[in-house]
Design a protein around this nucleic acid. Sequence first.
DNA 1: GTAGGGTTAG
Length: 433
Amino acid sequence: MSSDGFCANSIIVDMLILAYVKNFKTDQAFEAFERAGDYDFKLSVLSCNPMLSCLVKESKFGAGKLQKAGDVVEDMKVRGFSPTVVTYNTLINGYCKKGRVGKMYKADALLKEMVSQKICPNEITYNILIDGFCKDENVSAAMKVFKEMQGQGLKPNIVTYNSFINGLCSKGKLDEALGLRDEMLGWGLMPNVVTYNALINGFSKRKMLTEARGLLDDAVKQGLAPNVITFNILIDAYCKAGRMEEAISLHDFMLDRMVCPNVSTYNCLIGGFYREGNMEAANKILYEMEDKGLRTDLVTYNIRLDALCKKGESRKAARLLDEMLEMSIRPSHVSYNTLMDGYCREGNLRAALNVRAQMEKEGRRPNVVTYNVLIKGFCNKGKLEEANGLLNDMLEKGLIPNRITYDIVREEMMEKGFVPDIDGHIYNSSVNS
DNA sequence: GTAGGGTTAG
């Protein structure tokens, strides 16, 4: 091995790590990375950055991966080769995408760290931060980053504007969002389909469907091609408003424009038809979906479970849940809770409790909703003592009652003169959302 | 690096 640690072995480990990453074997890649450190092999950012990117992506599913990613960057520094701007962007992005409180604090600290390491943030670094702050509903912090970006001589681009527009839209500041779209034009930046999707989503979520639909027509007039997301946003809004004819006409319009519906599109339509009690239409869509070779997913099943339970056909719903297991679709909390609620509505508490046992057996821990459903079910049958027992059970398990728990307890127990035999914090839980 | 949604309790 030469004195700088660079040798054929290093290159081989580099390639090995890359190969692991390409085959989605992040854990093995990480192990190889650590081993290489033991032997003092010098790796390159060529393999480290892709590995980091995978760790960050996987941090969505498993805790600790983001920590690992941070360790990789520390290791890289200790081993004497510098992380690049890509390394930092990847890591900052990981923190920004996390839904945790204080994530932006950490992201901001990383920005300062990279500057202290003499690594220049680029447009992408700033865009990641701006988007993170906007998602945190902290538009003023985003503005500060925006100013800093310009102070560094970097020009905001379309991604920067889209993040701001989306942030404003989700806060319902629709006029300001439209104003920003017009401001972009002044800088020579043309709004794209992402800009329009953010705007259409903003208006749709405020139930301003005429305006939302107008924006779609506007986008087409500008020569932009609406995509599957554009249509899904609008179709979902029409379905939720119970305007199924218009939802279907949009579905036809997307086919005309050669935009392929996906599972989400169908889930919106199926849910919409079930909600208005039109089982035939919903089932027709279900067949159409299968015809096109699209596989129904967890959401499709949850929607169907809910429809059956609301119709008072919980037995059928239970069979549907079995079908999920056969199809290797792992039922979520929602799946089990929905079925439990169905049984509770039918007054079949024994079956509801069996579902709880089943969910625990399948590795899903009962959550607050599980307990809310059961407590309500027992209350409705006049079994206040048992309901109270469930309340204590959930507290013992460390589950924090929310506003809905409180409402149920107040309406179903306290107004009937029953005093819950639990410690005081349930009474103050109305602050929980 | 930006756009949807992940449909259970009230």
